[in-house]
């Protein structure tokens, strides 16, 4: 039985939620998502939030009672690690299972060069696929 605190293996897939309301991704255009979708926001104090595919489905991740629609970007742990990003498990008992974080991408350092470059790389190079917008319930 896998545990949420288990280290993340190279072949694991990871999910990143992208809110539809912010226009950061438009499947009708031929553009990759905006780097804003990977820019730490005020709540990302300890790292950018991702979720492990071994513990949650994209559909479950998109569910909410606010009727807010989400896309879910799929990323591969190996590709993030090869870029130099570390991903650590950080289970959150009040949120969806499989929560993990990229500690290097935090709100406080979001304007630093390295962080800005990672944001662009995540958006333009590292999304394996983007699903959605997914049903909210």
């Amino acid at each position: 039985m896998p545990d949420e605190t288990d280290p993340i293996s190279d072949d694991e897939l990871l999910y990143r939620r992208i809110p539809d309301s912010m226009h950061w991704y438009d499947p009708g255009s031929n553009l990759t998502p905006s780097p804003e979708a990977f820019r730490p926001k005020v709540r990302d104090k300890t790292g950018l939030s991702l979720f492990r595919a071994n513990f949650v489905t994209p559909e479950k991740l998109a569910q909410n009672d606010r009727n807010a629609r989400f896309y879910v970007a799929i990323l591969c742990e190996r590709e993030l690690r090869e870029l130099g990003l570390e991903i650590i498990p950080k289970p959150n008992p009040t949120g969806p299972p499989g929560h993990c974080e990229i500690p290097e991408l935090r709100y406080e350092n979001r304007r630093e060069t390295r962080s800005e470059e990672f944001q662009v790389a995540l958006a333009t190079m590292l999304c394996v696929e983007i699903l959605g917008p997914l049903p909210t319930s």
Binding site: M22, H23, L31, P35, E36, R39, K41
Partner: peptide, 15 residues
């Protein structure tokens, strides 16, 4: 595209 940044600002993006 133009997108909000979620922090009270916005971004013109050109690719």
């Amino acid at each position: 595209r133009v997108v909000p940044d979620g922090e009270g600002g916005l971004v013109f993006e050109r690719i």
